[in-house]
Computed example of a mutant assay.
Amino acid sequence: MLENGIVDWNAITAISNISLSVLTLLALAVTLYTVRVSNFPKGELLFRKEKRLYQIRFVNKRNVPIIITEIGFYIKMKKDKKINVLSRDTKRVKLEWADTKGFTKSKREIDLKLFKAGYSTGEKVIIVLFAKTTTNKLYTKKVRHIVGNTDIELSLNKATEVTGIDN
């Protein structure tokens, strides 16, 4: 490059051309990867626990439509390992980018179904939240749940007496 105090500009130009060619190929590879990945659907299952409610939200994270066919809660039975769906919504919904599909159930309803399935008060259960798409992709999230008071069944079957109302 430097010969007898004279700069060889041809060598410097060749080195810069090679480095620019490598950078261009690298930029092309990143662009192709981004285009390829952005064409695949991606969703996220979110869970929110409130005082008396369990809420599921499915959010579409990309600009590719996703059609949800089912969303809900299920458990795997402790004895035979069969899947027992506690509650679900089977209404088909098409979600565009950043759209959401929600599903809410009360803890009381879930406790009642768990009680009927053989679980007892205070027992720890893993409930699986799920959302299923038309491509049969299943998004899941596990949540710990403690089965509530078994008086729930009794209170649902009793008629409550209303007092203090004048006819």
Rank of each mutant, 00 (worst) to 15 (best):
T34P: 02
T34Y: 13
T34W: 14
T34V: 06
T34S: 14
V35L: 15
R36H: 15
V37L: 14
S38K: 07
S38E: 10
N39Q: 15
N39V: 07
N39L: 08
F40P: 03
P41H: 11
K42A: 07
G43A: 01
G43R: 00
G43Q: 02
L45A: 00
L45C: 00
L45E: 00
L45N: 14
L46S: 05
F47T: 10
F47N: 06
F47E: 05
R48M: 04
R48T: 10
K49G: 03
K49Q: 05
K49E: 09
E50K: 13
K51I: 08
R52Q: 09
L53H: 11
L53K: 07
L53F: 04
Q55T: 08
Q55M: 14
Q55C: 03
I56P: 12
I56H: 02
R57F: 14
R57L: 11
R57S: 08
V59A: 05
V59P: 07
N60H: 09
N60G: 04
K61T: 05
K61D: 07
K61R: 15
R62I: 08
N63M: 07
V64G: 02
I66C: 05
I66P: 08
I67L: 13
I67M: 14
I68Q: 03
I68S: 13
I68E: 09
E70M: 07
I71H: 14
G72K: 06
F73A: 01
F73P: 01
I75F: 13
M77P: 05
K78G: 03
K78L: 06
D80M: 05
D80Y: 10
K81Q: 12
K81V: 09
I83V: 11
N84G: 04
N84D: 08
V85A: 10
V85F: 11
V85H: 04
L86N: 02
S87D: 15
R88E: 13
R88C: 11
D89V: 00
K91W: 04
R92H: 13
V93R: 11
K94N: 10
L95N: 07
L95H: 01
L95A: 07
E96L: 09
E96Q: 10
E96S: 11
W97Y: 10
A98D: 07
A98L: 02
A98V: 06
A98G: 00
D99A: 08
T100I: 12
K101G: 00
K101E: 05
T104P: 00
K105L: 05
S106R: 12
S106C: 05
K107D: 02
K107C: 01
K107I: 04
I110K: 01
D111M: 07
K113E: 06
K116F: 04
A117R: 01
A117W: 01
A117V: 01
A117T: 02
G118N: 04
G118A: 00
